[in-house]
Design a protein around this nucleic acid. Structure first.
Length: 469
RNA sequence: CGGGGAGUGGCGCAGCUUGGUAGCGCGCCUGCUUUGGGAGCAGGAGGUCGAGGGUUCGAGUCCCUUCUCCCCGACCA
């Protein structure tokens, strides 16, 4: 049987590969309204893993979950000038409800700074109430002209954190803490995606923020993807919503606020950062299924061993699925490869006669045979190694496709299949616009050593430029 | 909004030039055989051809109107 590839090869047409893999791995479907997305169980399983890992880190950072309404009075949005200007083109507005036209239109939240600001103002009276650290898991709507599943949908799922602080320093420190200890830590240790952490140039900043921090990842086609951001909002929203508190000296002062978010876009990032021509490669810690046991043929012996192994692996804390399915061996293997399940344990009558089973890795394709009694220990160790190796190869790709450049022309060249690293000074005077004409943007600004700058005025900053999703 | 395409079973497409029984691949269902890298054979289900109007004995095909979707250019997690 001629081996025909199940997916469009990445090198042939990357966007097509992306669509193919989403369909064939059963991650998502287009919704009935343009730009909307149906997340299928396997895709949602990945999102649930992302949620669990992020939520734990957010709680460790001291924030507590709450929930605010989907509907926001239009007048709230208009209170912060930059914010409303930034978001008005993509708002969905409800003008009719209950069979009548509404006196004041209601906006479907594109983000919740405004409602949350209103309530924070109510809850904060004293410096003793600060910092106020909130997070919510929610859906938001931003009407998109060019939707792409997971990457840009008109409705998406995310977490949005909102905090209020007594001082600017405290707010700055918290935004940085979230960016590094929540987002970067998650991206490295769970998603196995190395990123460049930096600040956005003014042109790319969140509407209403005085500073935006970002983690920029590189996809396998060399394009950038913004994976998570946190914003220092200064006192812009505090002013608009009169978030005041009485200091220990008895003076009335304005709060300093932050907001920060990560969305279902992360699933898109996961797909494009690791996937290959055989399908997804899901790193073990984010994998809803870490190991699939594939019963090659259902003899009583195979069934017994498969059941026993499944129980043992689950007891060891590994997320296991058993495939006793009908259908050919090859077909089932290909299907699990497309889904990117990290490990596949093949159990057949022939193996059992010889007293072993076969363990195959999705990322490298390596197979080994091992005795039944060593399966749990081998698997546990291998899952840990696989995370490190997937991260290492992604890091290698990030580094080899990032080029130091010294001119705008070289930056354009570097952006054809990766990132350019260029002195920010070379871009401030018209260079950024020149890049933008080539669909290249400044993804973030860093210090020369890769650390986070305070603001874009700092001298000696380096810009990472690339085409992006 | 400017430019370019496409609407035909679940998905991907042919048929239209030159009107005459609506087809192909994949998928799906049933049965038998097969499960060690996308199984084989046999049988079967499933379509108001985007919508409306017109021409004609007869329209997927020709004419008019209309709707929708996709791709490329200005925003965004």
């Amino acid at each position: 049987m001629a081996q025909q590839s199940a997916l469009t090869p990445q090198a042939e047409d990357f966007p097509r590969w992306y669509q193919d893999v989403i369909a064939k791995a059963e991650l998502a479907d287009n919704g009935p309204v343009r730009g909307t997305m149906v997340i299928r169980p396997y895709g949602y399983g990945i999102w649930e893993r992302i949620q669990a890992e992020l939520d734990a880190r957010i709680k460790a950072a001291g924030a507590k979950n709450a929930y605010f309404p989907l509907f926001i009075p239009e007048s709230y949005l208009t209170r912060e000038a930059e914010h409303v200007e930034g978001f008005s083109p993509e708002l969905a507005v409800v003008t009719h409800a209950g069979g009548a036209q509404l006196a004041e239109p209601i906006v479907v939240r594109p983000t919740s700074e405004t409602v949350i600001g209103e309530y924070m103002a109510k809850w904060v009276q004293s410096y003793r109430d600060l910092p106020l650290l909130l997070n919510q898991w929610a859906n938001v709507v931003r009407w998109e002209l060019r939707p792409r599943l997971f990457l840009r949908t008109s409705e998406f799922l995310w977490q949005e954190g909102h905090t209020a602080h007594a001082t600017r320093e405290d707010a700055t420190a918290y935004a940085q803490h979230i960016q590094l200890e929540v987002y970067r830590d998650f991206l490295v240790n769970v998603l196995a995606t190395p990123t460049y952490v930096g600040i956005k140039p003014p042109s790319e900043r969140f509407a209403g923020a005085i500073n935006t921090l970002t983690c920029e990842g590189m996809m396998r086609d060399g394009k950038a993807l913004q994976m998570a951001t946190s914003h220092e909002l200064g006192q812009n929203f505090a002013k608009a919503f009169e978030m005041r508190f009485q200091s220990s000296e008895g003076k009335e002062e304005l709060c300093w606020t932050t907001s920060w978010g990560a969305s279902t876009r992360l699933v898109g990032g996961l797909i494009m950062a690791h996937g290959d021509d055989q399908g997804l490669i899901v790193p073990p810690r984010v994998a809803p299924i870490q190991l699939v046991i594939l019963a090659i043929k259902e003899t009583p012996e195979v069934t017994a061993v498969v059941t026993k192994l499944g129980d043992a692996l689950r007891t060891a804390g590994i997320r296991v699925e058993i495939d006793r399915g009908s259908g050919s061996f090859g077909r089932r293997v290909v299907d699990w490869e497309i889904k990117g399940v990290p490990l596949r344990l093949e159990v057949g009558p022939r193996d059992l006669e010889q007293g072993h089973v076969i363990l195959a890795r999705r990322d490298t394709g390596d197979k080994q045979s091992l005795t039944v009694d060593t399966v749990v220990s081998t698997t546990t160790a291998l899952l840990a190694d696989m995370h490190d190796e997937i991260l290492a190869s992604a890091t290698m790709r990030l580094e080899t496709n990032t080029h130091e450049v010294n001119s705008v022309d070289e930056a354009i060249e570097a952006s054809s299949g990766g990132f350019g690293r260029i002195s920010w000074d070379l871009l401030v005077d018209g260079g950024e616009a020149q890049l933008r004409d080539q669909a290249i943007t400044v993804r973030c600004l860093q210090r020369a050593d890769g650390s986070l700058p305070v603001d874009e005025q700092e001298s000696g900053l380096v810009a990472l430029v690339a085409k992006s999703y």
